[in-house]
Write a protein that binds this DNA or RNA. Structure first.
Lengths: 179, 179
DNA sequence: GTTGTATCAGAATGATCGTTCTGATATCTA
DNA sequence: TAGATATCAGAACGATCATTCTGATACAAC
């Protein structure tokens, strides 16, 4: 997963995957059928191991805008730990590299966006209308994608934090204005 | 350029390029030296043929926030004309696919970001402080990247326009708040 | 008309790709 | 211990990759 995440699908060879997993070609083909099958499995793993924990706070406490700020903070801290410029978001990378040409991946990406959007929407104040919450949540999904893209070219975690702060600050102003 | 733009670097073969250009292998290698050389040349062409015209209004009239809205509108209209889901932004695609592994491309991407940031900053009101304008301009670069990423998975130009409208609306609220 | 120079399509090249096959080694069952 | 079953490293496969080479064709100048 880490290799796909960092290098993308096309630039990753089967030899890279064998080396990175410490497994064998035979086992990989036995378990996943093909390079593409392994990629899809990595996509699932990413969802469970990276996305789900990050979205967990959104389920536990609703209507808590701070959860959104936490989400960005945690993701940036994670990127910083891995090293910047970093791999960004596996789904974000798949969006630009594969989504248009691979319907299966395209569907997974859209599903991920919906999930992220729902999580963001649930964190927004109950006082806002559903359509309003939806609109802001969509904006946050877009902002998140932009942030991971930037994280692939910048070495500065501080810049990412500043960007996230701007996003959150703008969001709060929107909410205040609606109230 | 169009082939690289749509399919990315790795997924584009020399055969694809020969077919798309109507040229010959020999000519391509004679003029650009390698696939990579051609890609860099396409990057330059993209800058001149796509980015420069889009940024032109920013040079002509400064401190005009409407220029930012126009920028998004024009780019979305262009994407709609090409067909959605579309190729997004060549630079944005290069950011996720190549920037981390190819220093030359990484530098070009950063340079593009700076140029975009400067353009956005120049459109913001003179009443704002330089640091404030810089911060908002950086946000807009991030938002633009997010928007082109979304444009690679959505078939709806209307959704893109709605997203752009949200961004502009938030920006205006920020500006009002600062005044 | 002949010679020199581009330009051309397409074959050749070595490398690498994803995928499969081949035995050898290890692990388990009885 | 004997036999069946996984698991292993690595060779082999055809396809495709970027790149180079080969002649043939078209056009230039003299």
């Amino acid at each position: 997963m880490r290799v796909f995440w960092l290098n993308g699908y096309s630039a990753t060879s089967m030899a890279d995957l064998v080396e990175a997993t410490g497994s064998t070609r035979q086992s990989i083909y036995g378990d996943f059928g093909s390079k593409h099958g392994l990629y899809v499995a990595c996509f699932d793993t990413y969802r469970e191991a990276v996305v789900a924990p990050a979205l967990d706070p959104f389920c536990k406490a609703q209507h808590r805008v701070a959860a959104i700020a936490d989400y960005f903070d945690i993701q940036i801290a994670h990127a910083e730990r891995i090293g910047l410029p970093g791999p960004g978001c596996l789904v974000g990378n798949a969006t630009t590299e594969l989504a248009a040409h691979d319907p299966a991946i395209g569907a997974l990406v859209q599903q991920h966006h919906r999930r992220l959007e729902d999580a963001f929407a649930s964190a927004l104040p109950a006082s806002l209308s559903t359509t309003r919450r939806c609109k802001l949540a969509r904006f946050l999904v877009l902002a998140a994608q932009g942030l991971w893209a930037v994280s692939r070219v910048t070495a500065s975690a501080e810049q990412l934090r500043a960007q996230a702060a701007t996003i959150i600050s703008m969001l709060k102003k929107e909410i205040e204005n609606d109230a």
